[in-house]
Amino acid sequence: MALPLLTVSSRPIDMIINDHSIRYIEMKPGNPPLPLRWGERYLPPGVVKEGKIIDANTLSVILDECIDIWKIRRRKVRFLAPDPYVTIRKITIPTDVLDSEITGYLYLEMGSTIHLPFEDPVIDYLALPEKEDKREILLFAANRQYVMQFSDLFADLKLKPEAADLSSLALYRLYDLLRKKKAEEKILVLQFDLDLVVMSIFENEIPFFMRHHYLPYNEKDWDIYIGRSGFQQLSFIGDEEELNEHFTEAFKEINKLIEFYQFSLHQGKNEISKIVLVGDHPLLETVRNQLHTRFEIEVEILDVNKLETEKNKPLPRSHYLAFGLALKEV
């Protein structure tokens, strides 16, 4: 999703800021591009909450330190619109609207024929194949206020915001890069993070639905240590019964989306063929096993270890989302 900002010529940095961390990746151009450098910094609780910057001063100080350590000052940066403030809608538009007029038409219809859960959106769209004199587009919209929070933060620290993207699109790009066989399929891309689950259904490479569910997160339930890779790792030390309850609630939301898609929309004719699982949750293998048991659907955890990286260092799973973001213009 392009922002109305200046384009600059330096090689971009791809950065993810969520409620508990700042992560970046720098790619070496190629086909496919090669992960060159990456980094991570955990955030104190309450600095970012549910995608909103709560303590701008603290975040600015921490990010400024990261920029110096990672030596990325004055670089272009691509980032993600916060998932809780993103929506995807299929919209029918008049057949006489020219391609060059679609964006203007969408803004004109906001609040009248097009209703979003927030005002003043940043939008992008994908034109769908025309059929039976019916013209449809897929509208991607994000709350401008929260997108610009991050854009302004980067600009204040002498980074150059280039574009904002959606996490679901970034992860699908990575999946598409990794999959061996290209085939028509209906998949659920499931981003299972420490504090947020993002669910996106793709039909033959086109995203039609996106939902999110919060996971309660308390840093006191996790032991944070430095692993062999030099990155911080988490080990659960809290109440396992409580954790299982949180997982169960998440699985209920996943089931609701699957049932809505398969039965309410398609009367049982369209089935999800695969769940693609990715995320920074330390118990992702446990999540995979429970998903397979509950839904009897193939579950694939994305694994980029078959791809090359600089000096063949393993890319942490926590940075897969940034990798997908870096594929935006490949």
Rank of each mutant, 00 (worst) to 15 (best):
P4S: 05
T7F: 12
V8P: 04
M15N: 02
I16R: 11
N18A: 05
D19S: 03
Y24T: 04
K28M: 08
P29D: 08
L36H: 10
R37P: 15
L43F: 07
G46Q: 03
G51E: 02
L59H: 03
V61R: 06
L63H: 00
D64N: 04
R74N: 12
R75T: 01
R75L: 05
V77C: 01
A81K: 06
D83S: 08
V86P: 02
T87W: 09
I93D: 07
I93A: 07
T95L: 05
T95G: 08
S100K: 03
G104V: 05
Y105T: 11
P117D: 05
F118T: 01
Y125Q: 00
L126N: 06
P129G: 06
E132M: 11
D133S: 08
N143M: 02
Q149K: 05
D152C: 03
D156I: 03
L159W: 04
D165N: 07
D165P: 08
A170L: 07
R173H: 15
L177H: 12
A183P: 03
A183H: 06
V197K: 02
M199Q: 14
S200L: 14
I201G: 12
F202K: 13
F202W: 13
E205T: 10
M210Q: 11
R211Q: 13
H212S: 05
H213Y: 08
Y217D: 00
E219H: 06
W222M: 05
G227Y: 09
S229K: 13
G230V: 12
F231V: 02
S235A: 15
I237T: 14
E241L: 12
E241R: 14
E242D: 07
E242S: 10
N244Q: 14
H246F: 07
E253S: 05
E253K: 07
E259F: 05
E259L: 09
Q262L: 15
H266D: 10
L277S: 11
V278T: 12
D280I: 01
E285L: 14
T286A: 09
V287R: 11
R288A: 10
E298Q: 04
E298D: 09
E298K: 11
V299Q: 10
I301W: 14
L302G: 01
V304A: 15
E308F: 15
L315T: 13
R317V: 12
Y320F: 11
F323Y: 11
L325S: 13
A326Q: 15
K328W: 15
